[in-house]
């Protein structure tokens, strides 16, 4: 228990969130049962976030600790852009990727999951969930590559690290795999899938829609023969629109975690040149004022550009 707490505080946090909707889920093993018990005593319906108190939403860092932290960051001029990769890419961005295709048996699907499993008729399986998560992660990768190399790379690394720790735990806890060696085999397999998918999506993204559709068909649809071409078109449109939104964001906004995926049932309208200019000015003004005002704490500072 304590070991789990230490190694997977963030993950736990995510999983607790998932369970919020249905406390009656029967996937619970011993660890989870312990978990529930504590939750019941704390609050009736809401699971505590992680057992690490620092993860809890109610938790407030004591003032002296906060000041000490800010002092250390300020004095040693620590690179917050680098440090922020953990909480933003590893935690926040991973959470928005994984929740897109998250589904449990006997439970109603979320809005985003409906798009994938009902509209596109994808099978409701663990590996399909992984493919959906992967697709979203790849989209983020594309944007991260446009950040300064040092930071973008770090963001990518954190996102991948988190993915595999999460999958490992899910295989043990949710899929009830008992053997560590089987889990390892799955992880290797997922790793290969990831490399292949990212390569294929990159190729499609850079060349044309037809190639991207082929990559989607091979990965997301698992090379199924009887596929509706309009489904492929829908996914290609979905991907391109998300990337468009990301491309209109500055590095600073993206690195601070201001991005979230546009729901599949909404469509993105392209900005006119004028609107784009206004948007850009607003962002620049906002961050300029913040920098000038001097209210930014050392931990909130960033060197990433807000003008691009």
């Amino acid at each position: 228990m304590s070991l789990l707490n230490r190694s997977y505080p963030l993950l736990r946090n995510n999983m607790a969130n998932v369970r919020l909707s249905a406390p009656s889920r029967c996937l619970m093993n011993t660890v989870n049962r312990l978990y529930t018990k504590e939750a019941d005593s704390a609050e009736k319906t809401v699971f505590p976030l992680a057992h690490s108190k620092y993860e809890s939403k109610q938790y407030k860092l004591p003032k002296w600790k906060e000041s000490l932290g800010e002092f250390v960051i300020g004095t040693f001029r620590m690179d917050m852009d680098k440090i922020r990769a953990g909480p933003i890419a590893g935690s926040y961005y991973y959470s928005i990727c994984k929740e897109q295709g998250l589904q449990y048996e006997n439970e109603p699907l979320s809005e985003s999951a409906k798009f994938f499993y009902e509209q596109l008729n994808l099978p409701r399986t663990f590996s399909e969930w992984f493919q959906i998560t992967l697709l979203h992660e790849w989209m983020l990768f594309v944007r991260m590559r446009a950040m300064p190399f040092k930071y973008g790379r770090n963001y990518q690394q954190k996102l991948v690290d988190k993915t595999f720790t999460d999958i490992e735990l899910r295989l043990f806890e949710e899929m009830n795999v008992k053997s560590g060696s089987i889990v390892d085999r799955y992880l290797k397999d997922f790793n290969t899938q990831m490399k292949g998918a990212i390569f294929a999506y990159d190729e499609g993204f850079f060349s044309d829609d037809a190639t991207l559709a082929t990559a989607v068909w091979r990965n997301l649809f698992g090379g199924r023969k009887n596929i509706d071409i309009s489904d492929l078109e829908a996914v290609v449109k979905y991907i391109r629109s998300q990337l468009y939104v990301m491309s209109r964001m500055s590095d600073r906004e993206f690195a601070l975690g201001k991005f979230k995926f546009v729901p599949a049932n909404e469509s993105v309208k392209r900005l006119s040149a004028e609107e784009e200019k206004i948007l850009k000015e607003q962002v620049i003004k906002k961050y300029e004022n913040l920098e000038k005002s001097g209210v930014l704490l050392p931990s909130e500072k960033s060197n990433l550009s807000y003008t691009n």
């Binding site: 071409i229 449109k237 629109s241």
Partner: peptide, 21 residues
């Protein structure tokens, strides 16, 4: 798909095609 409709409409420009990093 063949006419590259979405690639052209949602044009991400050099920012993503030739990423700074």
């Amino acid at each position: 798909l063949l006419s590259n409709k979405y690639k052209n409409y949602y044009d991400v420009g050099d920012k993503l095609y030739h990423p700074a990093g």
